[in-house]
Amino acid sequence: MTSHPLLTRRIAVLAFAATATLASQAQDLKQGLKIAFLPKQINNPYNAIAGSGVETAAREIQANSQMVGPSDAGASSQVGYVNTLVTQKQNAIILAANDPNALVPYLKKAQAQGTRVVAVDSDVAADGRTMFINQANSEGIGRAQVQLLARLIGGKGEFAILSATPNATNQNTWIRWMRKELRKPGYQRMRLVKVAYGNDDDQKSFVEAQGLLQAYPKLKGIIAPTTVGISAAARYLSSSPFKGKVVLTGLGTPNQMRAFVRNGTVTAFQLWNPSDLGYLATYAAAHLVSGNITGKAGETFLAGKLGRYAVGRRGEVILGPPTTFDAGNIDQFNF
């Protein structure tokens, strides 16, 4: 089919306008910035996707980026990397914390030498960073997970939560909101029987999922608000006698969960685009270093293709609401 010349011209104009907008934003930012991304775990697929967003934004603003981090999600595993980045005199550090407090003394040293610290995905104590880029409103995530599970199990039955690490800030905040949602009228027939921890390790999460299903024979559902946990649990569930009997939902990427949706192991789950999260954090960090914002509530900044964002209380910026993925829409997404 031949493209209409007017349509082709319009597409070209829109593409030029988008490129011009990004170039204009880049001119408002200092050039050649050094920005490092320190995820919870370097080999976590979720973190790799977030890192790709950091890299994309860094290219747009002509910054130099790197991603470094531990292979495990221990509370102290990130300390050495923070110290190295301080020695390198990075202009900004973007990090997802394995523990809200363990890194704070080292992050304070980074800030004292002028390095801007932006937390993303999993926050640190406020005195350890300037801004926190939250994937979505924490209350909204926690409540939405319970609401989705309630719909999938008909509002009744025992369920468990398969979390990441016991100290993960984001996980614990979401679980707290899940518990609050359960106290609302309408959930009297649902009961949370266990919170298990897979430590964001694939094999441990697999074993924990297996253990939950064996320990609680009346279990109707599992919420795994971690991309590692939900995929490991789905892998076990897909080849077990519980497939089709126990509902699994939580937070996962479309690419890792697509096969489990297609084979009927999982009906629906939720997430945001991790690449956009890293992308937004990079623009926030660059604006901080460039002096365009200070992280105070009410300030706004432009974040490339994502548009304008406002800084909220305690330096928090929210990417946007999560998306629910199911068989009807999962093939529209590739991340």
Rank of each mutant, 00 (worst) to 15 (best):
T2D: 13
V13E: 14
A18W: 06
T19G: 00
A20Y: 02
Q25A: 14
Q25F: 06
Q41V: 13
A50E: 15
G53Y: 03
E60G: 05
Q62W: 05
V68E: 06
A75I: 15
Q78N: 09
Y81E: 06
N91Q: 13
I94C: 12
D99R: 08
K108M: 12
Q111I: 12
Q113F: 12
T115V: 05
T115K: 02
V118L: 09
S122F: 03
L148P: 09
R151E: 15
I153D: 10
A164H: 00
N170G: 03
I175W: 02
L182M: 15
R189D: 15
R191S: 15
K194W: 10
A196H: 06
Y197N: 09
E208D: 07
Q210G: 13
L213I: 01
K218I: 08
I223H: 03
A232M: 09
A233V: 05
A234F: 13
Y236D: 08
L237F: 09
L237Y: 08
L248V: 03
Q256T: 15
Q270W: 05
L271D: 14
N273H: 06
A281E: 03
A281T: 05
A285M: 06
A286F: 00
N292V: 10
N292C: 09
A297P: 02
F301L: 13
A303Y: 01
R308C: 05
V311M: 11
G315A: 05
L319V: 06
G320N: 12
P322N: 08
T324Q: 00
D326K: 07
